[in-house]
């Protein structure tokens, strides 16, 4: 009796979890579905049954003279995201080394300085950044976004990588030292293999944040050099129906990050909690 009751409760709780998950996922499911509809099917009472079509995807990716095209925005995003992520790693890996493996005297203070820059709201820096970018002729260029996305993700990367680096056993490094391995050897043969998964998770989070970034892009690159988030908003029109088109555009824009996130979900939690929690 008792066991049967327990099993029933457990079954109901499982069912509840499924129900909540489906509700949470529904808007995304609906967005993807609407992308495959004709405008007339999207702009009506919700329809589950319809003739699916790829036309909206063709429409949003086709080029129109003088308007921001998908390919252009996609390439701008790819450039800004990939170069900034590489820069972040180039700067953060040595920093994490100096905070975890052969730590400087006040490593805690340095770490706090990095993370405290994340507490500074971007809005407090945007006006000077805009002025400086204008003076240097950097408005509407990829370069300005590359620099700022690097700065945006660097503290997070330093914080995460320090926690991954601090897990490398000291004895292994010492053993390599005794075997006569130079710094480069220690890094490539001992440290890197251990921190590689953490490095990948860090890079992935930087990619996600940079890919989804809108505030800086819309302030500094509203015309040329615009990225995917701006392209998505350009599919909202004040005339005519645009729901299906917007859905197709949204699906394309979110797909890379959602796929990457699904693949890395287990490690991501650690990154999101900034490596503070093991």
């Amino acid at each position: 009796m008792e066991v049967g009751k327990k099993r029933a409760v457990s079954f109901l709780l499982g069912l509840l979890s499924w129900g909540v998950a489906l509700v949470f996922f529904f808007p995304i499911f609906w967005m993807v579905l609407n992308g495959f509809k004709e405008e007339i099917d999207a702009n009506t009472d919700p329809k589950l049954v319809f003739d699916p079509t790829f036309d909206r995807f063709d429409e949003v990716t086709s080029q129109t003279q003088g308007l921001l095209g998908f390919r252009e925005a996609f390439m701008n995003s790819v450039w800004a995201v990939s170069i900034s992520t590489i820069l972040v790693l180039v700067l953060a890996v040595p920093a994490a080394y100096a905070l975890a493996i052969r730590p400087v005297a006040k490593w805690r203070d340095v770490l706090f300085f990095f993370i405290s820059t994340k507490f500074l709201p971007v809005v407090a820096a945007i006006l000077p950044l805009w002025i400086i970018a204008r003076e240097l002729d950097l408005l509407n260029t990829r370069l300005v976004l590359i620099i700022l996305y690097t700065a945006m993700n660097l503290p997070l990367a330093v914080w995460m990588l320090r926690s991954f680096f601090s897990e490398v056993p000291k004895e292994l490094i010492e053993a390599a030292q005794i075997d006569g391995a130079k710094l480069r050897g220690q890094i490539t043969s001992v440290i890197l293999p251990i921190v590689a998964p953490g490095l990948a998770a860090t890079a992935l989070l930087c990619v996600i944040f940079a890919w989804n970034e809108f505030f800086l892009a819309v302030q500094l690159n509203p015309v040329d050099g615009s990225t995917i988030p701006i392209w998505v908003t350009s599919n909202v029109s004040t005339r005519g129906n645009f729901l299906a088109k917007l859905s197709a555009a949204s699906t394309l824009a979110t797909l890379p990050v959602v796929l990457a996130g699904w693949l890395a979900q287990k490690r991501m939690i650690r990154g999101l909690s900034m490596g503070a929690i093991k």
């Binding site: 967005m31 809108f214 979110t254 990050v257 959602v258 996130g261």
Partner: peptide, 18 residues
Amino acid sequence: RTLLITPFLIMPVVAGLV
């Protein structure tokens, strides 16, 4: 769990518009 974390991965602009 995968279904539940997906909203967090959605681009904020897209989330707002959808």
